[in-house]
């Protein structure tokens, strides 16, 4: 039995009240679906005194709106996105990724904002206090050493959110609100390569929604996830591709891979592939480049050598699948 530590729960009824509460109580944390933060609190991973519960904001932040671009509220549940007709039409890879998050109960509880802000995961941190204490703790909490990278000074706990690679590949933008106002940020600038706190979100900021630009709807999209069981498990690898194809030729391509280290990786240097034919050789080339740039670590309890070997296979299959689909309707 694991009990939650004593905390105070604040229940704002608007975004403005929520960010005010975050500002007023330094060190407070946001509670939305609770599927990530509650187990982590039970593990003693945070010294939080205050939780800002967003249940009162669900009417305000649970929208799926198609106005030129696609606008999604941060409190849309993962299950809602997996089944939403507009998303299946405009961003089928997002619907696909959502349908593969965890299990059905967790998808009903977990939210899009929560998934994007999911804390990084590692076999050495997602353990009970007793377990971590016995090992002498680690960089991410209470300790000074990394058990994954010998001598490592930066936490490499893995970004394990399935929506992040898709939204990265599709060029999504996020909306952030703080007491100072609102700002928009490309999702590619949101994540940091530091597993202790892997986003640029400041303590008094709240991610309130995402915007998917309309040019993404016409792209061929794909998502793939590797996990031990077909349900419940966090990814051992996940990836997404967005291909812009005109008359059988690539106009642009972006490929993102997650569950490696703290930041979901956008594969670099793909511009020279523009103009190539969208065929099996393109899939092979993308697989080769992803294999070169992605180095799975022992932060996930699944053999990193095997994950590295299987990564190009999954990329190749995903790209071929995506290239074969019809472009999503706008």
């Amino acid at each position: 039995m694991m009990t939650l530590p004593p905390v105070e729960v604040l229940r704002p009824s608007s975004v403005a009240e929520a960010v005010e509460a975050l500002q007023k109580h330094p060190g407070s944390r946001v509670l939305a679906g609770g599927t990530d933060i509650v187990p982590n609190l039970k593990y003693g991973m945070y010294d939080t005194q205050h939780l800002v519960a967003l249940r009162g904001l669900s009417k305000e932040l649970r929208y799926v709106r198609l106005q030129n671009d696609l606008h999604l509220g941060a409190l849309c549940t993962i299950d809602q996105l997996a089944h939403d007709e507009t998303i299946r039409r405009c961003a089928p890879a997002l619907a696909e990724a959502c349908s593969q998050v965890a299990g059905p109960q967790l998808r009903r509880m977990g939210t899009l904002g929560g998934n994007l802000c999911l804390d990084t995961r590692c076999v050495y941190i997602n353990q009970s206090y007793f377990w971590r204490n016995a090992l002498g703790f680690c960089l991410k909490k209470d300790g000074t050493v990394c058990h994954v990278v010998a001598g490592g000074q930066r936490c490499v706990a893995a970004a394990s959110n399935d929506t992040a690679p898709v939204l990265l590949a599709l060029g999504a933008t996020i909306k952030i609100v703080s007491p100072r106002g609102e700002r928009e940020l490309p999702l590619r600038d949101f994540y940091l390569a530091d597993g202790i706190h892997n986003t640029v979100l400041r303590p008094d900021e709240l991610l309130t929604g995402i915007r998917l630009p309309k040019d993404a709807f016409a792209k061929r999209q794909g998502f793939a996830k590797l996990r031990t069981r077909a349900a419940i498990d966090f990814p051992s690898l996940n990836m997404a591709v967005a291909l812009e194809i005109e008359k059988g030729t690539v106009k642009s391509v972006s490929l993102a891979v997650g569950a490696l280290a703290a930041r979901p990786a956008l594969i670099k240097g793909l511009d020279d592939l523009n103009g190539q034919k969208a065929d099996a050789r393109l899939a092979e080339e993308l697989a080769r480049r992803a294999h070169k740039q992605c180095k799975p670590l022992t932060n996930i309890g699944v053999d990193p050598d095997w994950r590295r070997d299987v990564l190009p296979v999954l990329v190749r299959r995903m790209v071929l699948r995506a290239a074969a689909t019809a472009a999503a309707a706008s």
């Binding site: 599927t35 187990p39 519960a53 967790l106 009903r108």
Partner: peptide, 24 residues
Amino acid sequence: CDKGDCGACTVLADGEAILSCITL
């Protein structure tokens, strides 16, 4: 498991299956 993995704590909330061990 008491951390939202196993589903043994599943209850219905307005007819929807949720996990009661990670719900306040």
